[in-house]
């Protein structure tokens, strides 16, 4: 029992990681887009749990609020708007399965080798909070204010572009 309590953090980390991995693998094989969306949502929630274990609680909250709460809800709405019994996409995989699997194996091999060969650079930090939200906010608005402003410009551009895409379509049909 004491051993379990002592290693609870690591145990939870492995459980959340395995859950995220299984959800990601399910995304590859599930046929219905709604089920894929639910698998992606569960992967994101598992990742939020990992962020919480690592002590970056605000990133975990953003993960659930922005990714699951905004982006994936938007995606689920779109899936519900489309016809769920659409027979046009009966084929699950494209013709590029074999080259894609080869590229997948190469990518995992190269990146995995880098991760395992670069092991001495990583100290293996402890669980819990390394820095607080106050420190994050201060560095955000003192050192990275330009990036913050640039992302707001990016959001404005995205809104204008979304409106423009809809307007182009409407103008063509009038």
């Amino acid at each position: 029992m004491e051993w379990l309590l002592e290693h609870l953090d690591r145990l939870l980390l492995y459980v959340f990681g395995a859950g995220a991995l299984v959800s990601a693998l399910l995304m590859l094989v599930l046929r219905q887009p709604m089920r894929v969306a639910l698998a992606l949502i569960s992967a994101m929630v598992f990742l939020g749990g990992i962020y919480g274990l690592l002590g970056v609680h605000f990133i975990a909250a953003f993960q659930v609020l922005i990714y699951v709460g905004a982006i994936m809800v938007f995606m689920v709405y779109v899936i519900m708007m489309l016809d769920p019994r659409d027979p046009s996409c009966a084929e699950r995989f494209s013709v590029l399965v074999l080259p894609a699997v080869v590229a997948f194996v190469l990518l995992v091999g190269v990146l995995g080798y880098v991760v395992w060969a670069g092991a001495p650079a990583l100290a293996g930090g402890a669980y819990g909070s390394v820095y607080e939200l106050r420190q994050f906010a201060a560095s955000f608005l003192k050192e990275y204010w330009l990036h913050f402003e640039l992302t707001s410009v990016l959001l404005v551009v995205a809104v204008v572009a979304a409106v423009a895409v809809i307007q182009v379509h409407r103008g063509r049909h009038d």
């Binding site: 990601a24 995304m27 590859l28 995989f93 494209s94 080259p99 997948f104 990518l107």
Partner: peptide
């Protein structure tokens, strides 16, 4: 790495 590679595989394959 696994999540990134699985996402890449999904983009190409699905």
């Amino acid at each position: 790495v696994a999540l990134f590679a699985i996402g890449f595989l999904g983009v190409v394959v699905r």
